[in-house]
Simulated assay, not measured.
Amino acid sequence: MNASASHIAELHAQVTAHAEPPVVVVDRPFAILAVLIGSVAGFVFRGPASMLCHLSIVLREHGVPAVSVPDFEVEQGRVLNLLGNGEVRVEVPRA
């Protein structure tokens, strides 16, 4: 297995370990991420993303929300909500 395949296998294992489908934050919309459809609640892309790239088209066909938010940073494990207007809300943990 090459480095890219092992990275995707590790990401898939992390995603499927969640009780609820998570929102996945990644740098770019690489087509290989389509293997996560059905296991994720959505995607946030931190880098450039095109509405016409292969993954964007496949995500729309499957009704999986995705947004591009340049330089988006969030702590791992935080709860994200993707809103219909393209806004990303980070839930604040309760004290």
Rank of each mutant, 00 (worst) to 15 (best):
R28H: 12
L59F: 06
A9Y: 09
P29E: 05
C53V: 05
V44D: 10
E20T: 15
V40W: 01
V58C: 05
V25S: 07
A34M: 03
A49L: 05
A17D: 08
L59T: 02
P22T: 00
H7Y: 15
A41P: 01
S50R: 04
A31Q: 14
V15D: 10
V26E: 15
H12G: 01
V24S: 12
V15M: 10
D27F: 13
V24A: 14
V15K: 11
F43D: 05
T16G: 03
V25C: 13
S50D: 10
A17W: 12
P29R: 02
A49H: 10
D27N: 15
I37G: 02
A17Q: 14
A19D: 02
A5T: 14
H54L: 12
V44M: 10
H18V: 00
H12A: 12
V58S: 01
A31D: 13
P21K: 07
A13L: 08
L52Q: 15
A41Q: 07
G47H: 12
A9C: 01
I8G: 00
P22A: 01
G38E: 08
A5G: 12
G38H: 12
V44E: 11
G47D: 13
H12I: 00
T16W: 04
G42M: 13
L11D: 02
G47E: 11
A19G: 02
P21D: 01
L55Y: 10
V15A: 09
H12M: 07
L36D: 03
Q14T: 09
V23I: 14
I8P: 00
S6D: 10
I8W: 07
G47W: 09
Q14F: 04
P29S: 03
L52K: 09
H54G: 03
H18K: 11
R28K: 10
A49E: 05
H54C: 05
F45A: 01
L11E: 06
I37R: 08
L33M: 05
T16Q: 13
L52P: 00
P29A: 06
F45M: 01
V25F: 14
C53W: 05
D27Y: 13
G42L: 13
P29I: 06
A5M: 09
V24Y: 10
H12F: 11
S56K: 06
V15S: 03
V23R: 05
V58R: 04
A19W: 00
A5N: 10
G42W: 14
V58Q: 03
H54N: 05
M51A: 14
S50I: 00
A9H: 13
E10S: 11
E10V: 06
I37F: 08
P48L: 07
Q14L: 14
I32H: 02
V15T: 09
H7D: 14
D27A: 12
L33T: 08
I32K: 09
V26C: 14
S39R: 12
F45L: 03
P22G: 00
H18Y: 06
E20W: 06
V44F: 13
A19K: 05
A5P: 04
P21E: 04
F30T: 05
L36C: 04
F30C: 02
P22V: 00
H12C: 06
D27H: 15
